[in-house]
Write a protein that binds this DNA or RNA. Structure first.
Lengths: 250, 250
DNA sequence: GAGTATTTTATTGTCCGACAATCAGACAAG
DNA sequence: CTTGTCTGATTGTCGGACAATAAAATACTC
């Protein structure tokens, strides 16, 4: 019948004010924030209160500090920040590998198509380099996994769409552990990935969105096969210990 | 040559410890956190330090409080939390409506297909209800926009994939303002949306993923037409003032 | 005068102690 | 069984303090 009348503690109000200032770019990226004491003076609150507000903004990725620096600067959330937060959220919502895979399946073909449509020469070169790096890699499971993720990243970048770029990161992050298992346990995994990448690169180079999307669809579908062959149950929760989940094939 | 040896202030270490405890579910959701004084005692730091740590976790959505309550509880990030953070990030990365639209184009058909495959009777009922609500709505632009978003939400829910559900929210949030403009300025918008929803619901009901995806593709493509007809430049940045952006057709 | 040491200052991280507001229960009264 | 009253616990906020150290300013060297 009645709404609660919603009082907000000072630390929240302070962080809110700073936040909106940043969002409407009155505090532009790279700007150095005033000192805590100065902020406290301006807002007429205690420094402790200001600090609580700053911690919030800091973990939102809106404030950060330069390497080892003391003062805070206005920044925007990086891929890493967002990726970390989102993948953590997915894990807490008990997302399973099949869920992540399904999302990948939905989103990657679109990304590939966008990349094919709009790739700059530079982005293309980047993409080719990544593919080659993976192909040349021997052993070194972890690095190989990084290369695969790097390929998706480069593709997202080539699409020149920040939404894609930012959404890509958390999915890859969740995928990586299981991908490592696949590469370890499925002998033909590397060559299949390699050839899929080659086809996708070719399509992107030829500016052929349709073909890029199709090859990507196959590529992602292959991952699913990989899970099955590697003995990773599709219902494994991401963030779970994979070693515990894979059915014990030696 | 050498990595910086990375000292972390106490408030960070405290929040990190609590965070990992939550992530590995040693602090299960719904658990009441000890009082600040108690935490300070256990970590052997000052209460102010604990409070800074708590603020970080709070804005990550890992801690929250029950309506008007005082004590903190372990929670997981809600759709709203994530949606807010992500859409804010998109805005700061200068995403444009066309970028968001493209992401929608990529992801929604997959969601629709998933919903068609797995919808429970209950989720289907929910979806139908949402569609009907939109159809019955007259005037009340804001509410109508909410209904459209609600339709996508219900669809994501029906897919029973937390990844989809969580990714949906921020996209919709960014879309809403421009959607409002479309509904205002494009006379046939409502009826087109209504009929698309009807087709999608039918496909979901019939458990026909392929058809669901196809209709969704058309539905989303329609939005793009809507932008053009409404005079919203596709390169408008989301979060920008739309009234300033629409070409002045009175 | 450009680059390198050295000193000085400013700023953050942390602590302590304090107090009002208020939430959560217990308890009494109608 | 609801309403009012009391009590204790807990949070939000404050003020002041101090060591560590980053940033700025200064002196020094070639």
């Amino acid at each position: 019948m009645f709404e609660p009348l919603g009082y907000a503690p000072a630390y929240l109000r302070v962080s809110e004010v700073i936040r909106t200032r940043i969002l409407r770019r009155e505090l532009p990226e790279g700007e150095r924030l005033p000192t805590e004491t100065e902020l406290a003076r301006q807002f007429e609150v205690n420094r402790s209160t200001v600090r609580e507000a700053l911690r919030k903004l800091e973990s939102n990725g809106l404030l950060g500090r330069r390497r080892g620096g003391k003062r805070l600067y206005v920044t925007r959330p990086t891929r890493e920040t967002i990726g970390g937060g989102l993948s953590q959220a997915f894990a807490l919502h008990r997302a399973r590998v099949v869920d992540v895979w399904e999302a990948l399946q939905a989103v990657q073909p679109g990304i590939a198509a966008a990349a094919a449509e709009r790739r700059s020469p530079k982005a293309l070169a980047q993409l080719e380099a990544t593919a080659l790096r993976f192909a040349a890699r021997q052993g070194e499971r972890e690095l190989a996994v990084g290369d695969v993720a790097g390929f998706f990243d480069a593709l997202g970048e080539a699409g020149a769409n920040p939404v894609f770029t930012l959404l890509n990161e958390p999915l890859l992050r969740l995928l990586k552990p299981s991908l490592a298992v696949i590469i370890d346990r499925v002998p033909q995994a590397r060559s299949r990935i390699e050839s899929a990448q080659k086809e996708i690169v070719a399509a992107v180079k030829a500016r052929d969105p349709k073909s890029a999307a199709e090859w990507m669809t196959r590529h992602v579908r292959d991952f699913r096969r990989g899970y099955e062959v590697a003995g990773i149950p599709l219902s494994t929760e991401v963030g779970e210990d994979l070693n515990a989940a894979v059915s014990g094939l030696s």
